[in-house]
């Protein structure tokens, strides 16, 4: 005697999976939304709380203030990291799942039907031009290091504050995220078929090896740097508006 059980059809979010597959996409949804809301708020409502003493919020680095630009200077900067992260191969996978349920998770039914173009058609095809945002982001990364170094120097006096440390960590994390970029990995060595064919190729292979190592943890660096950059901006904002007191070695550190 066998017991027979009819199986229902799997529709939207249908799956035979029993684990909590929805946790990860949900966390990503919440995390990215929270960052989006905070950074938009912070950039739009800028009210000059982005700078104090030697500290400049990374959202504003390098500081671009022009007469002809009536809006927040952050907007002149933020399109770069926004574009870099939007076209990032890690984030693309993450938001295709969390925001567009395309698919929501592995072996879980999302949108069905043959009307699908993935990233093959304009305008979504633009996501594939990740490398150009990468160039800009690397440049920005240099500026962030400049900002981090500058934060140890206030009115001709070398010193250190909690803010300097936070800014340095921020520059480091963003660097680790940028240097693990898939496009960069391709450009430095991935595009070569032969690593041993010339001394130049051998050097590029060595750099490729490093980038590969960082690339394996791209997701980790993506999240840590994202959270930290928001925290850094938040910290500078809080210090400059007088909510936090920045512990530092400078006697003449400005009081807001």
């Amino acid at each position: 005697m066998e017991q027979n059980i009819a199986v229902g059809k799997q529709g939207w979010l249908g799956t035979a999976r029993r684990d909590t597959w929805w946790v990860e996409p949900l966390l990503i949804l919440v995390g990215l939304s929270a960052f989006g809301i905070y950074s938009t708020y912070s950039a739009v409502f800028w009210d000059y709380h982005f700078e104090i003493g030697p500290y400049l919020s990374p959202f504003y680095e390098p500081l671009l203030v022009f007469d002809w630009w009536p809006f927040s200077p952050a907007i002149l900067i933020l399109w770069i990291p926004l574009g870099f992260r939007t076209t990032c191969y890690y984030y693309r996978g993450a938001y295709w799942r969390s925001f567009f349920a395309n698919p929501p998770a592995c072996a879980v039914t999302g949108w069905e039907g043959k009307n699908y173009a993935g990233e093959a058609k304009f305008p979504i095809f633009v996501l594939n031009f990740h490398r150009y945002f990468m160039y800009a982001a690397l440049l920005l990364n240099v500026m962030l290091w400049v900002g981090a170094v500058r934060s140890y120097w206030w009115q001709g006096e070398l010193g250190i504050g909690l803010g300097s440390i936070i800014l340095t960590i921020n520059a480091f994390l963003l660097m680790m995220y940028s240097l693990g970029c898939h496009s960069l990995r391709h450009l430095v060595g991935g595009k070569l078929d032969c690593f041993s064919c010339s001394s130049c190729a051998r050097t590029r292979k060595r750099i490729w090896d490093y980038i590969t190592r960082w690339n394996e943890h791209h997701k980790f660096w993506a999240w840590v740097s994202l959270i930290w950059v928001a925290f850094t901006d938040f910290y500078v904002r809080m210090v400059s508006s007088g909510v936090f007191n920045d512990p530092n070695t400078w006697s003449n550190f400005p009081r807001p």
Partner: peptide, 21 residues
Amino acid sequence: FLCNITKCCTHVCPEDIHITD
């Protein structure tokens, strides 16, 4: 370009090939 890098192929690969990356 129809692949939208959601990486399920990599997750299920029993040979641990990093298919997407």
